[in-house]
C-alpha cells in the first residue's frame, strides 16, 4: 500500500475538497518533493503549530510570494547540485494564486523555473469568511458579493488563469477536478516529469463556502465538469492537446445544488442570469469541443 503523505487530524471541514486535492497531489508526486504553500485554507488546516499534516518537506510563504519562494528553493537545489533529489511544487488556493500571487507566479513562469505550480480552486477566500476572489464564478453570492435587492451576486466572470499561464508559452498547463482522482494523479505525475514551469488548476468544491452537504463534495465537482462550467483540458506551449469530453447537463443541475446560487432560482430576473451562466457553459463547450 502506498504511504499516506497527508496525515489525518488536520482541521479541514468534514467533506473538505482542498484536503482531497492535497492527498491526490501527493499520491501523484510521491515523497521526493518540496511543497510551498501560501496562506490559505490548506495552509491553515494542515499546519496548526506545533503540528503538521505534511509528511514531506513543506514551507509556508506569505499570501503573495509562494511562486517567488519556490523559485528560490529551486535555484538553491540547482546551485547545491541536488536538483535530482526533489521536485518543487507549489500548492496554493485561488486567492493566493489568481488574485494576490499572480505577479510572482507570472515571474516564475517567465523565468522558466522547473516548478509545478498547482492551484486548488475553491472559487473564493474560504478560511477568512467566504469573500469573493477573481476566480469566483458569475452569479455566485459571497460575503463581499452578496445577492440581494440590487445584486445577483458576483457580477464579473471567473478569471481564466489557465489561459494566462498558457500565454507564457510554458510546456504544460492543465485543469483537473478532484471528482476525477485518477486524472489528477496522472496530470501531477506528468507535470513533474516535464522540465520547466508547469501550471495546474484543480477544481476543489468547498461545502462550507458554496453551501452544500459535506457528503456531496465529489458530486458537485462532477456536475461542474458535466455542465461545462469547469472545462478539463491539457495544453502544451499554448496549444490545447487534450480535453475531457462530457455528456452535457444543463447548468441548473449544478447551480441549484448550492446555496451560493440559490437566489437565482428565487428572485425576479434570476432566469435571465441563469441564461447568462448557460451561455458561459455553451461558450466553454464550443471553445474546447467538450460535447461528446
Amino acid at each position: 500500500m502506498q504511504e499516506e503523505l497527508f496525515a489525518p487530524g488536520h482541521r479541514g471541514c468534514a467533506g473538505c475538497g482542498a484536503a482531497i486535492a492535497a492527498r491526490l497531489i501527493l499520491k501523484g508526486s510521491g515523497k521526493d518533493v518540496i511543497i510551498v504553500s501560501p496562506t490559505g485554507c490548506l495552509e491553515v488546516i494542515s499546519s496548526p503549530y506545533p503540528e503538521s499534516a505534511w509528511k514531506v518537506p513543506w514551507i509556508h510563504s506569505l499570501f503573495e510570494n509562494a511562486a517567488a519562494v519556490a523559485s528560490g528553493v529551486e535555484v538553491a537545489l540547482k546551485s547545491l547540485g541536488r536538483k535530482d533529489e526533489a521536485k518543487v511544487i507549489v500548492i496554493g488556493g485561488d486567492g493566493a494564486t489568481i488574485d494576490i500571487g499572480i505577479g510572482a507566479l507570472s515571474g516564475m513562469l517567465e523565468r522558466g523555473h522547473d516548478i509545478t505550480y498547482i492551484c486548488y480552486d475553491n472559487e473564493a477566500y474560504m478560511n477568512t469568511g467566504i469573500q469573493r476572489s477573481s476566480s469566483t464564478p458569475y452569479g455566485a453570492s459571497t460575503t463581499t458579493s452578496p445577492a440581494g435587492k440590487v445584486s445577483f451576486g458576483e457580477n464579473r466572470p471567473k478569471k481564466n488563469l489557465p489561459a494566462i499561464a498558457a500565454a507564457h508559452g510554458i510546456p504544460y498547463v492543465a485543469t483537473a477536478s478532484i471528482a476525477y482522482p485518477k486524472d489528477v494523479i496522472k496530470k501531477v505525475k506528468k507535470a513533474i516529469s516535464i522540465e520547466g514551469p508547469k501550471y495546474l488548476q484543480i477544481h476543489a468544491p468547498c461545502c462550507t463556502g458554496w453551501g452544500f452537504d459535506g457528503s456531496k463534495t465529489i458530486e458537485i465537482g462532477r456536475l461542474a465538469v458535466e455542465t461545462a462550467l469547469f472545462p478539463i483540458y491539457e495544453s502544451t506551449e499554448g496549444k490545447v492537446t487534450s480535453v475531457k469530453k462530457v455528456k452535457r447537463k444543463p447548468v441548473e443541475e449544478y447551480l441549484k445544488a448550492q446555496r451560493r446560487f440559490s437566489h437565482l432560482f428565487k428572485i425576479e430576473g434570476g432566469e435571465e442570469e441563469l441564461k447568462k451562466i448557460q451561455d458561459i457553459a455553451d461558450s466553454n463547450a464550443k471553445q474546447f469541443g467538450l460535447d461528446q
Binding site: 496525515a7 489525518p8 487530524g9 482541521r11 496548526p48 506545533p50 503540528e51 503538521s52 499534516a53 514531506v56
Partner: peptide, 8 residues
C-alpha cells in the same frame, strides 16, 4: 515540527 504530527 514533526511530519504528520496532526495525528495527535
Amino acid at each position: 515540527v514533526e511530519p504528520g504530527s496532526t495525528r495527535t
